[in-house]
């Protein structure tokens, strides 16, 4: 196995990690499987394109703007769509067997993509202010572009920072408390709606950063870039054990490694077959993922 292959796997794994961390964050805290996550990432990529192509922002700025745009979109999903639907379901005793939130996120994703298509049509875009990321570094026999480096650093720093925030800060404390017992947390003065909107914002912001970096990596942004990532994000968070950040990180690099190696020998459909087949087997052998406890079944099951 060549060293380039490993480098590619690490870069790809970092992209997956950026994407999946936000997905896991929302699932682990609020038991919402956010199927709009791919669309939110695409939204971030296009906000980035606007900042880059139209406003001519430097890339660092573009990343921030994209993060805010995608984060705001995700917070909107929580505050305007998911909360009212959850209230409505609760008032009609629909029960927790309820699939409505999943379908709502799916529909929201469709709306976001629909509006994007309406605005930008089915055209491919590229980022232009990327000279800063083109600079190559040589480590022994391995050449790494500063883009590769940026992706890996971004993924690891953001995920690490997020785990720290969740584990150590007051805000993280509030997220864990609301996740565990919304009513009790509110009886102590924590505002659950603010906490959940903020969590969705952070999750969306990470997807937005991921969108810009993916757009630069593949030199192409169009409205379909989220689709494939969503499926793979799905695989990763499940294999990692839904709700577990560490498990997600391990799974992201594992899936990337499997995919990169398979890519070298097989055609694309076969690679997908291997990846999805692995997912199915993992679920049947270890129903809670590599490190997951019972986050998921606790969230969806009745009691």
């Amino acid at each position: 196995m060549s060293i380039d292959l490993i480098k590619n796997a690490i870069v790809l794994g970092s992209v997956y990690l950026l994407f999946a961390t936000g997905f896991t964050l929302v699932f682990g805290s609020f038991k919402v499987m956010n199927l709009a996550h791919g669309a939110i990432m695409t939204l971030g990529a296009f906000v980035g394109i606007y900042a880059d192509n139209v406003l001519g922002f430097p890339i660092g700025f573009t990343l921030v703007v994209a993060a805010i745009g995608a984060g705001a979109g995700n917070a909107f999903l929580d505050a305007v769509i998911l909360r009212p639907i959850a209230r409505q379901s609760a008032s009609t005793h629909a029960g927790a067997e309820d699939l409505n939130p999943i379908v709502a996120t799916l529909s929201f994703g469709t709306i976001v993509l629909g509006l994007l298509v309406q605005t930008v049509k089915a055209v491919d875009f590229t980022y232009k202010q990327t000279d800063a990321l083109a600079k190559p570094f040589a480590f022994g026999g391995l050449t790494v572009s500063s883009l590769d480096l940026a992706i890996v650093v971004c993924a690891i720093v953001m995920t690490g920072l997020l785990s720290l925030i969740i584990a150590k800060t007051r805000a993280g404390m509030a997220v864990r408390a609301v996740a565990e017992d919304r009513a009790m947390a509110s009886a102590l003065g924590v505002r659950p709606n603010v906490v959940s909107a903020a969590t969705f914002f952070v999750s969306g912001a990470m997807a937005g950063v991921c969108g810009v970096l993916v757009g630069i990596l593949y030199s192409n942004v169009n409205v379909t870039i989220g689709d494939h990532l969503l499926l793979f994000g799905f695989v990763i968070v499940t294999v990692g054990g839904l709700g577990s950040l560490t498990g997600t990180a391990i799974a992201a690099y594992l899936v990337a490694l499997v995919q990169t190696i398979a890519n070298a020998y097989f055609q694309a459909a076969a690679v997908d077959l291997i990846v999805f087949g692995t997912l199915l087997l993992t679920l049947l052998i270890r129903p809670n993922g590599i490190l997951g406890k019972n986050a998921l079944s606790a969230g969806i099951a009745r009691r």
């Binding site: 799905f234 499940t238 999805f276 679920l283 049947l284 998921l296 079944s297 099951a301």
Partner: peptide, 11 residues
């Protein structure tokens, strides 16, 4: 159970 069933059947 639940979403795990969903993901397994989706895959």
């Amino acid at each position: 159970r639940g979403a795990y069933q969903g993901i397994a059947t989706l895959s």
